[in-house]
Structure formats: structure tokens, C-alpha cells
């Protein structure tokens, strides 16, 4: 192997040589099968490197990130809220009495949490009365434990099924018409989810569709949360 030549092969491959050096390398390569073979190998190494696939992590890392970006304000990671506070902040919840702990971060929740926070600050500064999140609980105080739910994974299904259970357990506390309205609207959302899912099957690379599906799923969770909260507030 001619190292004085092979040392130039990477630069040759990357087009980093001056025209004169380039010509010299090319004329050597025409007469040297060994160096031509090395060049061929290097070309294949580069091709292989460019083809390396990008694999996502084995574990979903989002929870850890969400925890750290949510602590950006004063809000601690795990907090106990009363129901009215949650209603005010539009954060998803489930009663601890149901033995389940979930949290969710969606655009509405994060936004309304921001709104609640800044409004709190504003109202304190301007008029001194209590912020909405601190209003007196009109319903029985329930300690709500909060954890994280992402809309793209199995946790979501688990959260939905937990809410459905909570709603089922509490449904006798709601009047029939309210139950009918909630079920009718869940049907509408399910239909939308199904259509988005079918469309995504025929067009899997369509990022609009995946985002749309996430939105519809979020909406379903939100409605279930709201309905489950109603069963508790009606105590």
C-alpha cells in the first residue's frame, strides 16, 4: 500500500484537493490497482455511514423532558390540586379515589396553565383578589395526583380506559340527558379518530394526519376528563 497516495484518497473522495493534486491522484489510480481498491473501500465506508439508520431510543424519554420543562415556572412536578383548581386550569385529572394517577400536557392545558399563572400574577398586582386557581372549592375537596400522559402511546389508551371506568362508576350521579350528550359527543370524536386513522393508513407519511389524530385523541381525553369531573362535582 502506498501511504503517500492513500493518505490523499479521503480528500480526493471529498473533493478537497487542488486541481493539480487531483490530477496526480487520478493518474496514480489508473496505474495502481491496490490504491484503486482502497478508494473503492473508502467509498463504500462513506456510503455505509450515510445509510446508517436513525433509531429512536428504546424508552420514551419525553416524560423526563416534560418534567423538567414544566418545572420552569414555580410549579412543582407533582402537585395536589382540588377539583375546581383543576377545572380552572383545564389540566387533565382523575380522582385519587379511583386509584389512578395521570397527568397530561396538551396545548390547551399548558396554555391555560400559563394563562392562569399570569392572570394570577396580574390580578394580584392590580386588584389583590384571589386568582381563579385559588377559588374556594365548590365541590368536595379531592386530592388529585398527577402524572404524565402522552397522546402517542399506550399510556393514552390506559388513560382513556381509566376515565371510562371512572365515568361508568360515577354515571348514576349524572342525569340521563347529560350522559346522553357526553356519549353522543364521544361518538363524534371516535368517528373523527377512526377517519383520521384510516386516512393515515393510506397515507402514513402525512404529518398533518398524525397531528390531526393526536388533536382528536386529546379532545377525547379532555371530554372524558370533564365528564368524570362532573360525576365528582355532583356529590
Amino acid at each position: 500500500m502506498h501511504e503517500e497516495w492513500t493518505d490523499k484518497l479521503s480528500d480526493y473522495l471529498d473533493d478537497e484537493l487542488s486541481p493539480r493534486e487531483r490530477q496526480a491522484v487520478e493518474s496514480h489510480l489508473r496505474g495502481c490497482a491496490e490504491c484503486a481498491a482502497v478508494l473503492d473501500d473508502l467509498t463504500r465506508v462513506v456510503e455505509r455511514a450515510q445509510r446508517l439508520d436513525r433509531r429512536p431510543p428504546r424508552a420514551d424519554l419525553w416524560d423526563g423532558i416534560a418534567a423538567r420543562i414544566e418545572t420552569r415556572g414555580a410549579a412543582p412536578r407533582r402537585v395536589s390540586f382540588t377539583l375546581p383548581q383543576l377545572a380552572a386550569a383545564a389540566v387533565v385529572l382523575i380522582a385519587a379515589s379511583a386509584g389512578i394517577a395521570w397527568q397530561f400536557a396538551d396545548r390547551a392545558a399548558s396554555r391555560s396553565a400559563d394563562i392562569a399563572r399570569s392572570t394570577e400574577a396580574q390580578s394580584r398586582a392590580s386588584s389583590g383578589y384571589e386568582a381563579p386557581a385559588e377559588r374556594e372549592p365548590s365541590a368536595e375537596r379531592s386530592n388529585i395526583d398527577i402524572a404524565h400522559v402522552s397522546f402517542a402511546d399506550a399510556q393514552y389508551d390506559a388513560a382513556v380506559s381509566d376515565f371510562e371506568k371512572a365515568l361508568q362508576n360515577g354515571r348514576r350521579r349524572l342525569d340521563k340527558t347529560t350522559i346522553a350528550i357526553v356519549e353522543h359527543n364521544l361518538q363524534i370524536i371516535d368517528q373523527a379518530i377512526e377517519q383520521a386513522r384510516q386516512a393515515l393508513e393510506t397515507d402514513p407519511a402525512n404529518d398533518y394526519l398524525s397531528g390531526h389524530l393526536v388533536d382528536a385523541r386529546r379532545r377525547k381525553l379532555d371530554l372524558l376528563r370533564r365528564a368524570a369531573a362532573l360525576t365528582i362535582e355532583s356529590d
Binding site: 391555560s112 392572570t119 396580574q122 390580578s123
Partner: peptide, 10 residues
């Protein structure tokens, strides 16, 4: 004026 939140199911 300020924070306005309105919620209803039906």
C-alpha cells in the same frame, strides 16, 4: 377584562 373562562357542556 383579565382572565375570562366560560365552560358549559350543553
Amino acid at each position: 377584562s383579565g382572565f375570562i373562562s366560560l365552560k358549559s357542556v350543553q
